[in-house]
Design a binder for these strands. Structure first.
Lengths: 175, 175
DNA sequence: ACACCCTATGTGATTTTATAACGTCAGCAG
DNA sequence: CTGCTGACGTTATAAAATCACATAGGGTGT
């Protein structure tokens, strides 16, 4: 819960390394802003339509460093005056996921903003079971044991789900 | 990894290696039988109760090399005269998963029999999106990029989900 | 401007997946 | 026998996701 207030102004502290990794304090307003700006830029560049609902959902996801369920998102959309039926949330999420702005955490049936916007990638996640924080790491599935097994039997990997559940550094400290 | 696997008996079945991996033809009656026998033995050894429902569910999972949803299992249980309400299936599945006789495929919200009974392990799966076959490979999550990332930030991994979706060798051939 | 089409959105209903809550019964320890 | 525990059965409900259909807005070509 370290993240849920938009702390103070200080718009000039990109806690680099920590930002990449995900657990660790950082200027959160900054990461929401840049996340939205990056998305907007890429949508313009690629002819994608970052509509109000989609933008709002992305903003909500960026504001948390946790996975949000579709229905949590839906509640907030309702509060903001958007449609209030499940398809509204699911369609926005589908758009964000398909275009790499967000990811689904299969283990939680929930969604997080992508922490590494840009090219396509196969993300890996660390999920804290105490505080629900989620951090995204890079992964190289084709290089590990799984990739080797796939090559050995001739399985053609199209997509991977890599999720680690455990305790985040903050929660370890608190014990 | 470090698995002392119990598969080493396989005297003259055609596809040893394939059996380990999962895609490929093999003596299927054999793998159901040995799967059940192994489970029974381990339950006796460890004081676990392999009750009729649990045994039947395990048998059903062993008969497929695919993930079965809880409700598919429930239908078959009903046909066999067991209780027909969801908790019946979920409780049996919980038992099998908790004790390592089966795994949940998060990506599919479905379940498969464990292909590597024996010690605790962190499985990795290959899921064919054409024919729904599922193969289990060994994984070494702590050694890959994810393990490195976790160590770097001080995240303590307790459990991992590793699932690759793609096309299995059989389906590639058929194209 | 107009008609047309395509995409996105809004809404109601339904399906699929999973859990809560509570009663019963069998096996076993005291 | 009594009381406990773990497994099972059933009703009900929650949570997650999709289907089907209607409407609205923004471009395009004419």
């Amino acid at each position: 819960m370290i993240y849920n207030n938009m702390t103070s102004e200080t718009p000039s502290t990109p806690a680099d390394n920590a930002d990449l990794i995900g657990f660790a304090k950082h200027d959160h307003a900054f990461c929401v802003e840049t996340g939205l700006a990056t998305a907007q830029a890429r949508c313009e560049a690629e002819g994608l339509r970052l509509t109000p609902v989609r933008r709002k959902v992305l903003e909500m996801l960026l504001q948390e460093h946790r996975a949000l369920g579709a229905y949590a998102i839906l509640d907030r959309l309702r509060d903001e005056g958007f449609g209030s039926q499940p398809p509204v949330a699911y369609r926005a999420l589908d758009f964000l996921v398909e275009n790499g702005f967000a990811h689904k955490i299969e283990r939680l049936n929930a969604f997080v903003a992508c922490a590494h916007p840009g090219g396509s990638h196969s993300p890996a996640f660390m999920i804290c079971r105490k505080c629900d924080a989620v951090a995204e790491a890079y992964s190289a599935p084709a290089k590990g044991a799984l990739g080797a097994a796939a090559r050995a039997v001739g399985f053609e990997i199209e997509r991977t789900v890599v999720e680690a559940e455990g305790i985040c550094p903050d929660c370890i400290e608190k014990r």
